[in-house]
Design a protein around this nucleic acid. Structure first.
Lengths: 192, 192
DNA sequence: CGTCTATTTGAATGTACTCAAAAGCGGTGG
DNA sequence: CCACCGCTTTTGAGTACATTCAAATAGACG
């Protein structure tokens, strides 16, 4: 039986839910467990669910024509993950999503979330705020990439995702920073 | 007297509004005209309004420690502009917003939009979808910056903002691409 | 028309990449 | 429990992409 503590705390960051609303949400929330490297979504498929990471870590990435992968986002505990475009329009996804560790998720299917917007209108507000926050996170990330050197971005990564560096492979971080693993290794050497 | 045609068409992309709802929206929509280089929002101030560009073009940018500016977004006709974090939380802004041309805007103040979410719940949906779309636009932009060369990004810029290149200064585009105006000039030379 | 700013051009420099090889580390099976 | 395999990280050398600085040219606007 899953524990709803983290996800309810997450909702509580933006909306106040009464017991009936919480019950309504719990009744449609689904639960899933992923092993390391398991794939949750593949480019071209439709992103049918929006995921809350209860434990573990996901990465959102895509593969370019040459076949190399680029991470756009890490989702450790208490982050939400989806290909937003694919999910909200129910169209083919641009991104892949995979587990970097053994991961436990809650998720809403597209249909159950649309119904939930009707049954619990506060959820519409919650996901609007969530999207806006994601929006501003990305806006700053763009800022960071266009205005800072790889070394500065690496230090920002450490700040945004405390302790994560110890949990995941360096090549994943390099991919997130937009540099090669070789160059990240050199940066790390410089920074003790 | 402003013409509501463009902005109503914009709402209609995501929600169907009846005459009463439209009237309600019109009654709180405000209008503003900006001259070229006029500033709409400055870093540190609170972003009190969310703007719809009816005519002209805005840029969203910030200034780094060394004093140089970095554009994160251009907003020509039919785009929405705000510092989302600042607006949605009513906290100090990270970005500046300024006009690249003579620009005509519609806008909602924070208070009037919060009230509008109550009076016209469809607007909650509209702005959730808007934020999600912005979110996915940025996600792809990050992808583009971390995986493509400056030259490829320049070609993508031309595709995302057709004709805009003719309207604004090259140094603005260079700032958006995260390169120097000098290097953009070299790229343009190569591409005929 | 003159002034101010933007763009172009060129040379030298620095940042980050590729390729290649060696070293380290984690898991699996004997 | 250790040895081996495969993958990740490190190290080094040479290269490509993008920058800085400086000067010349072109454009915009009062």
């Amino acid at each position: 039986m899953p524990v709803f503590e983290n996800i309810l705390a997450n909702f509580a960051l933006h909306v106040n839910l009464d017991a009936a609303e919480q019950a309504c949400i719990k009744s449609v929330l689904q639960h899933q467990r992923l092993k390391k490297n398991e794939i949750l979504l593949e480019t071209g498929a439709t992103c049918r669910n929006i995921y809350f990471v209860d434990k573990g870590c996901l990465r959102v990435y895509n593969r370019d024509r040459e076949g190399s992968e680029h991470n756009v986002l890490f989702c450790p505990e208490n982050w939400w993950a989806a290909d937003m475009t694919s999910f909200s329009g129910q169209v083919p996804a641009y991104y892949n999503i995979a587990a970097l560790e053994t991961t436990e998720l809650f998720y809403f299917s597209y249909q159950s979330l649309e119904q939930l917007y009707i049954d619990v209108p506060k959820m519409e507000r919650f996901f609007r705020i969530l999207a806006q926050n994601g929006f501003s996170l990305y806006q700053r990330r763009i800022n960071s990439i266009i205005s800072r050197s790889a070394e500065e971005r690496y230090l920002q990564f450490q700040h945004l995702y405390p302790k994560l560096e110890q949990r995941i492979a360096q090549k994943q971080i390099a991919s997130y920073l937009g540099i090669t693993p070789v160059f990240l290794s050199m940066i790390r050497k410089r920074n003790g």
